[in-house]
Design a protein around this nucleic acid. Structure first.
Lengths: 113, 113
DNA sequence: CAAATGATTAAATAGTTATTGAAATGTTGA
DNA sequence: TCAACATTTCAATAACTATTTAATCATTTG
């Protein structure tokens, strides 16, 4: 995992329909779902689903396999785990993360967010 | 954490400059960095940084505090952890989920606080 | 108060993304 | 082969995102 791949993966998940599709596939398990079933479940048109699945597949977050006239999509758990590992690595400069969980200091400085 | 908040957070991280900014802040620790220092470090203009920090702040991934004329930005570790938890929850339909839930092979970095 | 500094906001623009309907591709079974 | 079905690709458009320059806001200091 590197920055560009992480951006691609994050972008793939950073959209309501795709995040929902991915989560449905995660819960569907390794067998996955046929594209048509997934489209119906999400309430979107087949071309719309195809567009979004393309993004997820390019990011490596879902796998597709053809079975007869159906194409089954399933979640790529390992890719998901790689992304999570990347996001959480080098936290706190590699040092102990304890300081990060210290309550926000009530200094004279003004909190603006 | 819900779907919409997750999408906002993922979108905030799904851009090279913002992901890089966030990672720099994560490594900078709880004190964070002044906006100017961060802009210089990333090699982008102040307005560009302001635009990107706004996205990260709205997603709750960074905190800002004013100190004199400087505004210090720091990573919100707890928000990051919430996102990671959301992404990995309900994995495999709640059933046994060895592939995705196994401890990270090369590190123990999944938890960041 | 005025000047200087750090940062944000505004306006304009180029580039990217999502959505829709129509057409095309590929697979199965009569 | 032909008809039916599942899915994808194409083309057009609307909406959103990122970047730039100029202007504005806020804080400190002379």
């Amino acid at each position: 995992m590197n920055r560009d791949r992480a951006v691609t993966s994050l972008a793939a998940l950073a959209q309501g329909t795709r995040l929902e599709a991915f989560r449905v596939l995660v819960q569907a398990g390794p067998t996955g779902l046929a594209a048509g079933d997934l489209a119906e479940r999400l309430g979107i048109s087949p071309p719309a689903l195809s567009f979004h699945l393309r993004g997820l597949a390019q990011a490596g977050l879902v796998h597709a396999r053809q079975q007869g006239r159906f194409i089954y999509y399933s979640a790529a758990y390992d890719a998901m785990q790689s992304l999570v590992d990347f996001l959480t690595e080098n936290c706190c400069g590699g040092a102990a993360c304890a300081p990060a969980r210290a309550p926000a200091r009530k200094s004279t400085s003004r909190r603006i967010v």
